[in-house]
């Protein structure tokens, strides 16, 4: 999709031109903005104000969109974690910004006319960026960041299949760490907050090396196709499978139906009941499935 790259050049170019025109590539103007007790220059406040105005409108427009105008996924809702990395990083960045008067955008925008000093700054900055991940891990280890409140609860129906209420993006590392290789989303996007829609979950899961499959089950209107797809994903999985929906109930129903005939109906009802899922009303349906299929997948 060439338009995507053309628009990235346009956006970068407009950003660079704005930095040059606003005076933000002049390190003295930036240092004077920070020098509240000395030669204070308020220009940067106008730059920031001018930049926030169109962006505030853009966020409102984006909130009404499912996907970007090019059909790409929009950013997830922002985290509210005020962790140590954010605070320590911002302090270090503020100090470096004041020392030389350059932040990353202007450092790049001025590289063609910033001389050898500008080049050295950029190389040092890139060096710092290479070193940062190692430092970040150390800070995380010192103080595990508070996770956003999540409803996740790993409820194993079998050693290879667990169900859970709705998960958050931040739950995926724990799912990976628990040994699961595949995540199934049994909830239609229409009933989930936008930041947890399939594209976001899929991207985050795949970034961790997890397989992610959306198999939306409409409450009370489960289809044969749902059962078939869940079975296929189970068969293809290289390790334990983790399925979630609103409560874990639909994941349990699909599991009971795909195992009908393979396990006793009593067992298929009793196992989810341990976690409070009542499949008793489906007894007839499970038995009908058992008579039809004969063999299922555990």
């Amino acid at each position: 999709m060439m338009r995507r790259y053309g628009l990235a050049v346009l956006s970068g170019g407009l950003f660079g031109a704005g930095l040059r025109i606003s005076g933000m590539t002049d390190t003295i103007k930036v240092q004077n903005w920070l020098d509240v007790f000395g030669t204070w220059d308020p220009t940067l406040a106008f730059v920031l104000g001018g930049a926030i105005l169109p962006m505030a409108v853009a966020w409102r427009v984006a909130a009404r969109l499912e996907r970007s105008y090019l059909g790409l996924a929009l950013p997830a809702a922002p985290s509210r974690d005020l962790d140590r990395n954010l605070i320590a990083g911002s302090i270090l960045f503020g100090m470096g910004w004041a020392l030389a008067g350059l932040c990353p955008g202007p450092a790049l925008a001025s590289i063609s006319f910033g001389g050898i000093g500008g080049l050295v700054f950029l190389l040092a900055m890139l060096g710092g960026m290479v070193a940062a991940p190692a430092l970040r891990v150390r800070l995380d280890g010192a103080a595990p960041a508070a996770r956003p409140r999540s409803k996740m609860d790993i409820r194993a129906l079998t050693p290879t299949y667990a169900v859970s209420p709705q998960i958050e993006l931040s739950d995926l590392p724990a799912i990976k760490a628990a040994g699961f290789t595949t995540v199934i989303d049994n909830r239609p996007d229409g009933e989930i907050p936008a930041h947890l829609h399939t594209p976001h979950m899929k991207a985050a899961a795949e970034a961790l090396g997890l397989t992610f499959v959306a198999n939306p089950v409409i409450g009370g209107a489960l289809t044969m196709e749902n059962v078939r797809l869940q079975s296929k994903v189970m068969a293809d999985a290289t390790g334990p499978v983790f399925a979630y929906c609103a409560s874990g109930n639909r994941c349990s129903v699909v599991w009971a139906l795909m195992n009908a005939g393979h396990r006793s109906t009593d067992d298929l009802i009793r196992t989810p009941a341990k976690y409070g899922y009542n499949l008793e009303p489906l007894r007839g349906q499970i038995e009908a499935f058992a008579a039809e299929s004969g063999a299922g997948i555990d």
Binding site: R3, R4, L7, A8, L10, S11, G12, G13, L14, F15, A17, G18, L19, R20, I21, S22, G23, M24, F46, V47, L48, G49, G50, A51, I52, L53, P54, M55, V57, A58, W59, V61, A62, L65, R67, S68, Y69, L70, L72, A73, L74, P75
Partner: peptide, 17 residues
């Protein structure tokens, strides 16, 4: 210049997501 910077950010958000 600030309006241009914000415009650039708006393009990157609304088109490139």
């Amino acid at each position: 210049g600030g309006l241009m910077i914000g415009g650039a950010a708006a393009v990157y958000l609304l088109f490139n997501g």
